[in-house]
Design a protein around this nucleic acid. Structure first.
Length: 848
RNA sequence: GCCGAAGUGGCGGAACCGGCAGACGCGGCGGACUUAAACUCCGCUGCCCGCAAGGGCGUGUGAGUUCGAAUCUCACCUUCGGCACCA
């Protein structure tokens, strides 16, 4: 700041600008939506609420900054924008801190929340703090309990014993929380075991088909595909085999199987039961008892420890019993093997080794018959034994070795014919099976919503009466370091009287999965203090579904699926009227540390935003995060390049406050371009500004923030070339600066507000915030061009360019192109075979 | 193995309804300003050949469609994300 040219203006100093405006905005309640105002279009903008982990880093800014820009952008379009925030405050890390450091989870959590609020404010974010929701507060979680009781009453919540996923550190997990081939816990990474336990479930499977229907919501295709795969709908048939009588049992038991290929029924040469199948014991022949028992024990161990990979050799043992195939009365052996899963279908399969890879491998392993029943149309009649299972489905396939069904096309004709025959004899029917299972929601943890039920010796499971809600977490608790939930030993909590019979009873000590909280929190934002129910139905009907939701794709089959389920279930119990939560979803990418790993304190790869704010100011950070690349892509964190963005804001500052300054380093400074007079220069400036407005508007709409920033930089660069010239400070110049500030305002709210205020002061007009201005409109007359530069190609290579009037006749354009000296020279007298005139955008001359 | 996304300069990336590849920024080189440095400003910067004019090559690889392909089609390679024997 030592040059005379720039010493006239004050330096751009974010530290003196930003806190002042943040305070002013809060004071004016500039960003409070009026939920009762129906005169303007409503716009519910939601960003996934953060977990207050204490690991605050630049990733939080990356997630929230563009959403905040959208909120501001929509407001400038006159929308009534509701943009709330809250905290996903229950969860394990708080409990971990309690066990490790002896700090109460509530204290730890509230401290982190306080720090996070401060940081979110320093971002200049326009959250509506009056709507804030903290899920760990009884005012919120009592409604989790209320909803749970509703679900219980409607049969959507139930308690059952089931083989469940068990993490040695975190206890039970939902199936969605088990990751990878090694089956590790999503939180702590420990190997997950299987256990048979009584647990609480929500009946998400009731909604499997409805959850497959995405019509009416605009979600990214990858998420829809992931959810569809997770739900895993398969159409097939349920077929009833029966056990054959033998020396040790009378037979006649039904063995139901699910198959997607009923057309291969004649190829079933054995059956396989899952180790957990209830008939295993009954069907085991005395001579096999020891072998089977040993196998079951081993299979159990196998599932409890690491299941290394799916390509380990298949194992199994024969039970010494047989089943009868309902289509042809054939007797086939029954085996037990752990490649059949208890939890899918019926836990039993008909094995068709010729047409299923797993059955094929198993048959090979144990020397079982492999009978081909589907033959490709082009296969020779006698081609010897199959070398691998034939699983493809070609239209030319035919059925063989299938009695009366021989010669049929398997799909769909054979499929339907066999199902029809089974239905006629009552031995089977068309059926659908799903991969998705009910949502296991109980956790053996302290820091979560207590499940509001009581166990009574006489009355069994008794719901806590609604008027007794909330069931509060006891505050005085001892985390005695064992890792076990203190609720299990806290008698002030445990000991209750049964609401039905009044006798001593015991309270449920399990708490809810924290994904319950996030499955409906956005409804609560609309009326965080409402006491008549979880939501104010009137506001919910008016304001939801959420118009735009933004958050990470890692929640594809957890939060984003649970939320859809919850919305449908809440509708079915009469709490709300809609069936989809989020109309439009955008998945932003993730910012990773420089080492390519997720940012966390323990890895030491976090970038602290406070540090950057102190150095560059919030506006620079906001802009830089948007400029880094496409928002849905994420990337590795690197501060390289942040200086470029900061320089840009400095240039905006200079342009706005010192239009007549001259840069001593620029030999052309103060002079118009050689080919422009004042009028032409003003036309250039207007054209640049309005063209930028056109494209920047589209980019905000399309969430293409990186190119939006680039285009604003381009405009600033253009204006800089005219700084200090005869047009600087003129009408066209002032208009361009005004447009630049308005376009930049959603992304860099402080500097634009400051400059806007200074303009108002200089013009002696009353101040109104730039953020309540109306988004400008493009002046079509400013962006029409009189001439256009057209590339001229020879055989697809650009060889010359010709400047022509806009709207030139194609024939005239071609004539001009062919007449260019350079083109004539390169053609060297050759006559063009053809001349392509691509809609007046380009000329391509084809020779030879 | 299956499903999904993506491969473009030294780097982040732009263009992708087929039509000037590399916008914008970083980094690098050169220059102006300065006693000097920093800051700021200006210019150049895909690779190769050439003093230059200019030419050749170039969007993961290989084919194809087309007057014309980063963009469309097919096959393959690599990276990242998801799933994990789902009958």
């Amino acid at each position: 700041m030592t040059t005379t040219a720039r010493s006239r203006i004050e330096r751009y100093d974010p530290a003196s600008i930003e806190p002042r405006w943040q305070a002013r905005w809060a004071e004016l309640e500039l960003y409070e939506a009026d939920l009762e105002d129906t005169s303007r279009p409503k716009y519910y903008l939601l960003t996934m609420y953060p977990y207050p982990s204490g690991d605050l880093h630049i990733g939080h800014w990356y997630i929230k900054t563009p959403t905040d820009a959208v909120a501001r952008y929509r407001r400038m379009h006159g929308d009534n924008v509701f943009y709330p925030i809250g905290f996903d405050a229950f969860g394990l890390p708080a409990e971990g801190a309690a066990i490790k450091n002896g700090i109460h989870p509530a204290i730890w959590t509230m401290q982190n929340i306080e720090n996070m609020r401060r940081q979110l404010r320093s971002m200049g974010a326009t959250f509506q703090w009056s709507a804030e929701v903290v899920t760990a507060s009884p005012e919120f979680y009592r409604w989790n309990q209320w909803i749970f009781l509703k679900f219980l009453e409607a049969g959507l919540a139930y308690r059952a014993k089931a083989p469940i996923d068990w993490c040695p550190n975190d206890g039970t997990l939902a199936r969605e929380q088990v990751e990878g081939p090694e089956r590790r816990c999503w939180r702590c990474g420990a190997l997950v075991e299987k256990r048979d336990l009584e647990q609480w479930f929500l009946r998400i499977t009731n909604y499997a088909d409805e959850l497959l229907d995405f019509s009416g919501i605009d979600w990214p295709e990858p998420i829809r595909i992931q959810q569809t795969n997770w739900i895993g709908r398969s159409e097939g048939a349920e077929i009833v085999f029966t056990t054959a009588p033998d020396d040790h049992q009378p037979g006649g038991d039904e063995l139901r199987v699910f198959t997607t290929r009923p057309d291969t029924l004649f190829g079933a040469t054995f059956m396989v039961l899952a180790p957990e199948h209830p008939l295993v014991d009954k069907l085991t022949a005395p001579g096999q008892r020891a072998t089977v028992a040993a196998y079951l024990a081993q299979a159990r161990r196998q599932t409890e420890i690491e299941r290394l990979s799916t390509d380990r050799p298949k194992t199994g043992v024969a039970l010494g019993a047989e089943a009868i195939n309902p289509i042809n009365g054939e007797r086939i052996p029954i085996w037990v093997a752990d490649y059949v899963l208890a939890g899918y279908g019926t836990g039993a399969i008909m094995a068709v080794p010729a047409h299923d890879e797993r059955d094929f491998e198993f048959a090979r392993q144990f020397g079982l018959e492999i009978r081909e029943v589907i033959r490709p149309g082009d296969a020779p009649a006698d081609r010897g034994p199959l070398r691998e299972a034939y699983v493809s489905k070609a239209p030319t396939d035919v059925m063989v070795n299938s009695g009366p069904f021989d010669g049929l096309r398997p799909i769909p004709d054979g499929f339907q014919a066999i199902v029809a025959e089974l239905e006629r004899t009552g031995r089977g029917k068309a059926a659908v099976s799903y991969r998705i299972r009910d949502w296991l929601i109980s956790r053996q943890r302290y820091w979560g919503t207590p499940i509001p039920v009581i166990y009574c010796e006489t009355d069994g499971i008794v719901p806590v009466p609604v008027e007794d809600l909330p069931v509060r977490l006891p505050e005085e608790v001892d985390f005695h370091g064992s890792g076990e939930s203190p609720l299990k030993t806290d008698h002030t909590f445990l000991d209750v009287t049964c609401p039905r019979c009044g006798r001593p009873a015991r309270r449920e000590t399990d708490t809810m999965d924290t994904f319950i909280d996030s499955s409906w929190y956005w409804f609560r934002y609309l009326s965080p203090e409402y006491t008549e129910g979880p939501v104010d139905r009137r506001l919910v009907d008016r304001w939801t579904p959420v118009d735009q939701y933004t958050g990470g794709a890692e929640h594809a089959v957890m939060h984003l699926l649970y939320s859809r389920f919850f919305t449908k279930a809440l509708a079915d119990v009469g709490v709300i009227g809609q069936r989809e939560p989020f109309k439009r979803l955008f998945n932003q990418g993730q910012i990773l540390g420089a080492d390519g790993e997720r940012m966390s304190k323990s890895r030491g790869n976090v970038q602290d935003p406070d540090e950057l704010v102190a150095r560059y100011g919030a506006d620079t950070i906001r802009l830089f995060l948007m400029f880094m690349g496409p928002w849905d892509q994420g990337g590795l964190w690197s501060p390289t390049g942040i200086g470029g963005v900061h320089r840009f804001l400095n240039r905006v500052w200079t342009l706005a406050l010192d239009p007549h300054g001259i840069e001593p380093g620029d030999p052309q400074a103060g002079r118009l371009p050689a080919d422009e007079d004042v009028a032409a220069a003003e036309r250039s400036i207007r054209m640049a500004a309005h063209r930028t407005l056109r494209v920047v508007t589209e980019e905000y709409e399309g969430f293409r923030f990186n190119t939006m920033v680039a285009h604003l930089m381009e405009l600033a660069n253009t204006l800089f070339r005219y700084r200090g010239t005869a047009v600087a400070g003129g009408a066209a110049w002032d208009e361009a600066i005004r447009l630049l500030l308005l376009m930049l305002a959603p992304a860099a709210p402080h500097i634009t507000e400051e400059l806007w205020a200074r303009f108002a002061a200089a013009a002696d007009t009353p101040w109104t915030s730039i953020h309540v201005q109306t988004w400008p409109t493009v002046d079509p007359s400013a962006i029409v061009d009189e001439t256009r530069e057209i590339p001229v190609q020879i055989n697809g290579k650009v060889r010359d360019k010709v400047v022509v009037p806009v709207g030139i006749e194609p024939a005239e354009l071609e004539r001009l192109a062919l007449d260019r000296p350079r083109i004539r020279e390169l053609l060297a007298g050759r006559t063009p075979e053809r001349v392509v005139n691509a809609g007046g955008r380009l000329v391509n001359i084809v020779v030879d």
